[in-house]
């Protein structure tokens, strides 16, 4: 059952992921944005399969919600015409990149993963869930976050602050 769910979500995620990068509908970034949202959603489903409920929720809320809204906002703001979007061009570099990525990198990664096939991960749909029943809950992650990872967490907040300031400075015409 879980395996079936996994495959459904995985295939959906991969297909929509392909639509993000190489949209069959056209060059307009809006298509890509929508495909990305879908990918994020399917990934959230995969997170659920992995008992990462908190992350799954965040994925929907923050990623699909906030960040993607920002993207669509910008897409709308720029309102690119066909000329401005322009045509895709295939250069030697890109071809080399394609070959290397598909043959070299994928082969390498796949080889690693197959070579290191490890014990299957048991899912919560059946018995034998994680030893810690609270695994992946807000409480669990929250405790970790505010105890072990307090400093990185605070640093992240500074990062976000800086990002906000930076975004404002950059995007504004005149300060």
């Amino acid at each position: 059952m879980a395996l079936i769910l996994f495959f459904v979500f995985a295939i959906a995620a991969v297909l929509s992921g392909i639509c993000v990068a190489f949209s069959p509908f056209g060059n307009n970034p809006v298509y890509s944005a929508i495909a990305l949202i879908m990918t994020l959603f399917f990934l959230a489903c995969e997170f659920v399969l992995l008992h990462a409920t908190f992350i799954a929720v965040l994925q929907i809320l923050v990623y699909a919600g906030a960040i993607m809204v920002l993207f669509t906002f910008v897409i709308m703001l720029l309102n690119l015409s066909k000329e401005e979007i322009g045509e895709e061009r295939l250069t030697l570099t890109k071809v080399v990149g394609l070959v290397v990525v598909l043959i070299g990198l994928t082969y390498q990664i796949g080889r690693v993963i197959w070579a290191h096939k490890v014990a299957p991960v048991t899912l919560h749909l059946t018995d034998g869930g994680p030893s810690n029943p609270a695994f992946g809950t807000i409480q669990d992650v929250g405790v970790k976050l505010f105890q072990d990872f307090l400093v990185p967490f605070e640093v992240t907040s500074i990062l976000l602050l800086v990002a906000i300031v930076g975004a404002v400075v950059l995007a504004k015409r005149k300060i």
Partner: peptide, 8 residues
């Protein structure tokens, strides 16, 4: 691309 080649 160069980076990926190197990584590979």
């Amino acid at each position: 691309v160069v980076f990926v080649v190197g990584l590979t």
